[in-house]
Amino acid sequence: MMADPLKRRQTILTRLVLVCAAIVFIAPLIVAALTSLKSPAEITRVLSLPTDLWWQNYAAAFDRMGRSFFNSIAITVPAVAFSILIGAVAGYPLAYMRGAGGKAIYFLLLTGMLVPFQIVQIPLFFMIQGLGLYDTVPGMWLVHTAYGIPFCTFFMRNFFASVPRSMYEAAQIEGCGPARYFWKLLLPASTSGLSALAIIQTRAIWNDLLFAITITSSDNARPVTVSIAGYASSLQVEYGPLMAGTLVSILPVMAAFLLFQKAFVRGLLGGAGK
């Protein structure tokens, strides 16, 4: 393969393109990482290298984030699971229903994606308060599950629609009911789709700020994004701890990415039809 000079040039070219793109993607994060290690005096020079490594920013970030970091994990893990499950539960019949009713319901659920979340704030507050879930972690599960419905349904319905219909028909012939088919055959065969959605949902829920400030008010349930946002104040921004907190908060999402990415590729390479 390498003997072909044209092929070789192409390979070099693609590598070059990738490396350039990677530099563009990573440069802002390098600046962020450098900033997270600068003292307040040094932060006035944007592109300078930190002279001493000012780890205090990380200490400050941990100090403020502490509990909220664990809240974020306690919120995100179940909320991701619930929202994917409900997306699958709603997506399954919508992928197989033929007729106007199914389409109408699908259309209705999709319109939810168009709703700017800022407008639901006040009614949402009253509902959550009425349910006694204000400032609780389960309250956050409920909200993320509910507001994940349109996207998760959309995603899972499209995924299920791409699963060969022959599988469904074969199951029906063998007398496998629709519920059994869903739990025993369809879900296990959909690891790749579920994993991809898990990555997307992890990121969305982990990074949510709007719902967090609407229905949490204390360390009982407040997630890490609220603490991070707290470093950007009305007039002042503490860039050092802000960037330190940001970099630390990326880690769980990256961990989820790596974790699901593996299952994801394996599921794909194994084939959906097994």
């Binding site: 993607f25 994060l29 982990w206 990074n207 700020l209 994004t225 950007a232 908060s249």
Partner: peptide, 16 residues
């Protein structure tokens, strides 16, 4: 690397 920026909270994206 290509996925990294997508994981950052909006308020930090603004600051960066």
């Amino acid at each position: 690397i290509f996925f990294l920026p997508f994981t950052i909270p909006a308020v930090s994206v603004g600051a960066i």
